[in-house]
Design a protein around this nucleic acid. Structure first.
Length: 209
DNA sequence: AGGGTCAAGAGGAACC
DNA sequence: GGTTCCTCTTGACCCT
């Protein structure tokens, strides 16, 4: 990988320039779109490939692939984006090995000091900034996941409390009815099932002692 | 086509 | 003032 300045790194300009990437799937586009892209990006090393194998669909228009263009600093491939696209981002995909290594490191410590960052960056052939960003995003993902878990837990607790509240309200209502002078089974003392349970437990404890 | 994922950008807060 | 982190957003890419 070429060495890029931090500025290049921070602005994302290094992307698509020097990083060895897995072979990208060719981006398919119609001939006019391809020609426009090629016109906007004459210095690119885009390889124009006629997709003869792609003729099985009903679309009769000619289709081409725009292969990865390693030496292109600015290149437009979208016909709807007609500015000069100098700031077009190319998405970096970490390899399985890089992701695994980052994950393992994250398990050990979810923040890194500058030395650790540099070491890891060297090991993975990435910029320290990329390591930093990965850890930031990873922390954010962890937090989001935890928030979701907490939310589900609170929802469950809330539901339980709501059920309990309903039950107690019902019990109170029953007690009120039973205390009414008009009730044939009128109670001399107010009793509820909670009190009953407490009383029962106390009696059991007394018996055990 | 639209939604999901994730690397990276941007801006602000906290810390020294 | 510089650095690091958090949070929200953007944009590329992938999948259905």
């Amino acid at each position: 990988m070429e060495d890029f300045s931090d500025e290049e790194c921070n602005t994302g300009l290094y992307l698509g320039l020097g990083i060895k990437k897995e072979k990208k799937k060719p981006k398919l586009m119609n001939k006019p779109c391809f020609d426009l892209a090629f016109e906007l990006c004459p210095k690119s090393e885009a390889i124009k490939v006629h997709n003869s194998h792609n003729n099985n669909n009903n679309n009769n228009s000619e289709r081409f692939s725009l292969e990865y263009y390693p030496n292109a600093t600015t290149c437009s491939t979208d016909s709807d984006n007609n500015n000069n696209n100098t700031d077009r981002r190319k998405k970096l995909r970490l390899t399985k090995e890089q992701s695994a290594m980052l994950e393992n490191t994250f398990k050990l410590h979810n923040t890194l000091n500058p030395v650790q960052k540099k070491t890891l960056a060297d090991q993975l052939k990435l910029k320290t900034r990329q390591i930093e960003v990965w850890f930031q995003n990873r922390r954010a993902r962890t937090k989001l996941k935890q928030t979701e878990i907490d939310y589900e837990l609170l929802k469950k607790q809330c539901q339980n409390l709501s059920d309990e509240n309903k039950r107690l309200k019902k019990e109170l209502q029953e007690l009120k009815v039973r205390q009414s002078p008009l009730c044939p089974q009128r109670l001399s003392k107010p009793v509820c099932s909670s009190c009953d349970q407490k009383l029962l437990k106390r009696n059991e404890d007394n018996n055990n002692n």
